[in-house]
Amino acid sequence: MKPSDAKKQRTLAAETWRRFRKNKLALSGMIVLLALVLIALSTIVIDLVTDNAIYNNYVIKQNLRLRLQGPSKAHIFGLDEFGRDIFMRMIWAVRYSLFMGTIAIALSTVVGVLLGSIAGYYGKVTDNIIMRFMDVLLAIPSMLLATAIVAALGTSLTNVLIAIAISYVPTFARTVRASVLTIKDQEFIEAARAMGASDLRIIFKYILPNSMAPLIVQATLGVAGAILSIAGLSFLGLGIQPPTPEWGSMLSSARSYIREGWHITVIPGLGIMITILALNVMGDGLRDALDPRLKN
């Protein structure tokens, strides 16, 4: 067997991974994210095992007498305005930022893919109705839209998720529609149709798998955006309610103490920054790895 044959036999995933691996920056972004996922999962397990004992005694436990104390050996990130340990709060907050971002994007991906593929596949009036509605949604800045939705539905975890999911739907719908349009006229689709495959089968079995690449990239970058939106909503007091730790709300409630203690604003800010940066470099790496034009 010649080496070139071996290369051809690689699956798309393996080929992408091979190229992704070469990008050190993207790789480090992925490592950071994996670490965050691990932290989030372990806090969930700890809460289940200890019946929230750690959460109650360390994360939301106040010690007002020691408020705003700077970093020390006992509290490496210092204490916040209620004397709560910032390190513990940062760790416990990971799950909200990361998982809520992921869930919100998963939701909007499902809806966006459905709408986008229907619009792209059927075209004409269907396309016009769906896409013009998406255009209307797109015309409103996503943060403003999410704020309006949360304000209308009331502040709760679920509503924040729904609001962010809705505000990201148009992006996914457009991405999917565009790739559906380029694929649906190709010969293998015509062949499938000639063999009597149903519309559903054609869309899900033949079109969507071939338009996965841009979707994956869009979703990775979307998670970054969604985390920022959740933090933003919490900052405005519309997201996660106290005393639940969340980076955005930690930042928001800390801002009036910025002149008294640097650590309580800087640390949640760094947390948000590092996560977003990791997601973005990983998303960029994925795009480069998936982009067919870069294939060697």
Binding site: N56, K61, E81, F82, T155, Q241, P242, S253
Partner: peptide, 23 residues
């Protein structure tokens, strides 16, 4: 005011009352 309520929320938690602060 919200900060005051958050501190009170914690004090009531100590005697077993779970308070949800709604702003």
């Amino acid at each position: 005011r919200v900060e005051m309520c958050q501190a009170i929320q914690e004090m009531l938690r100590e005697i077993g009352i779970t308070v949800k602060v709604e702003v």
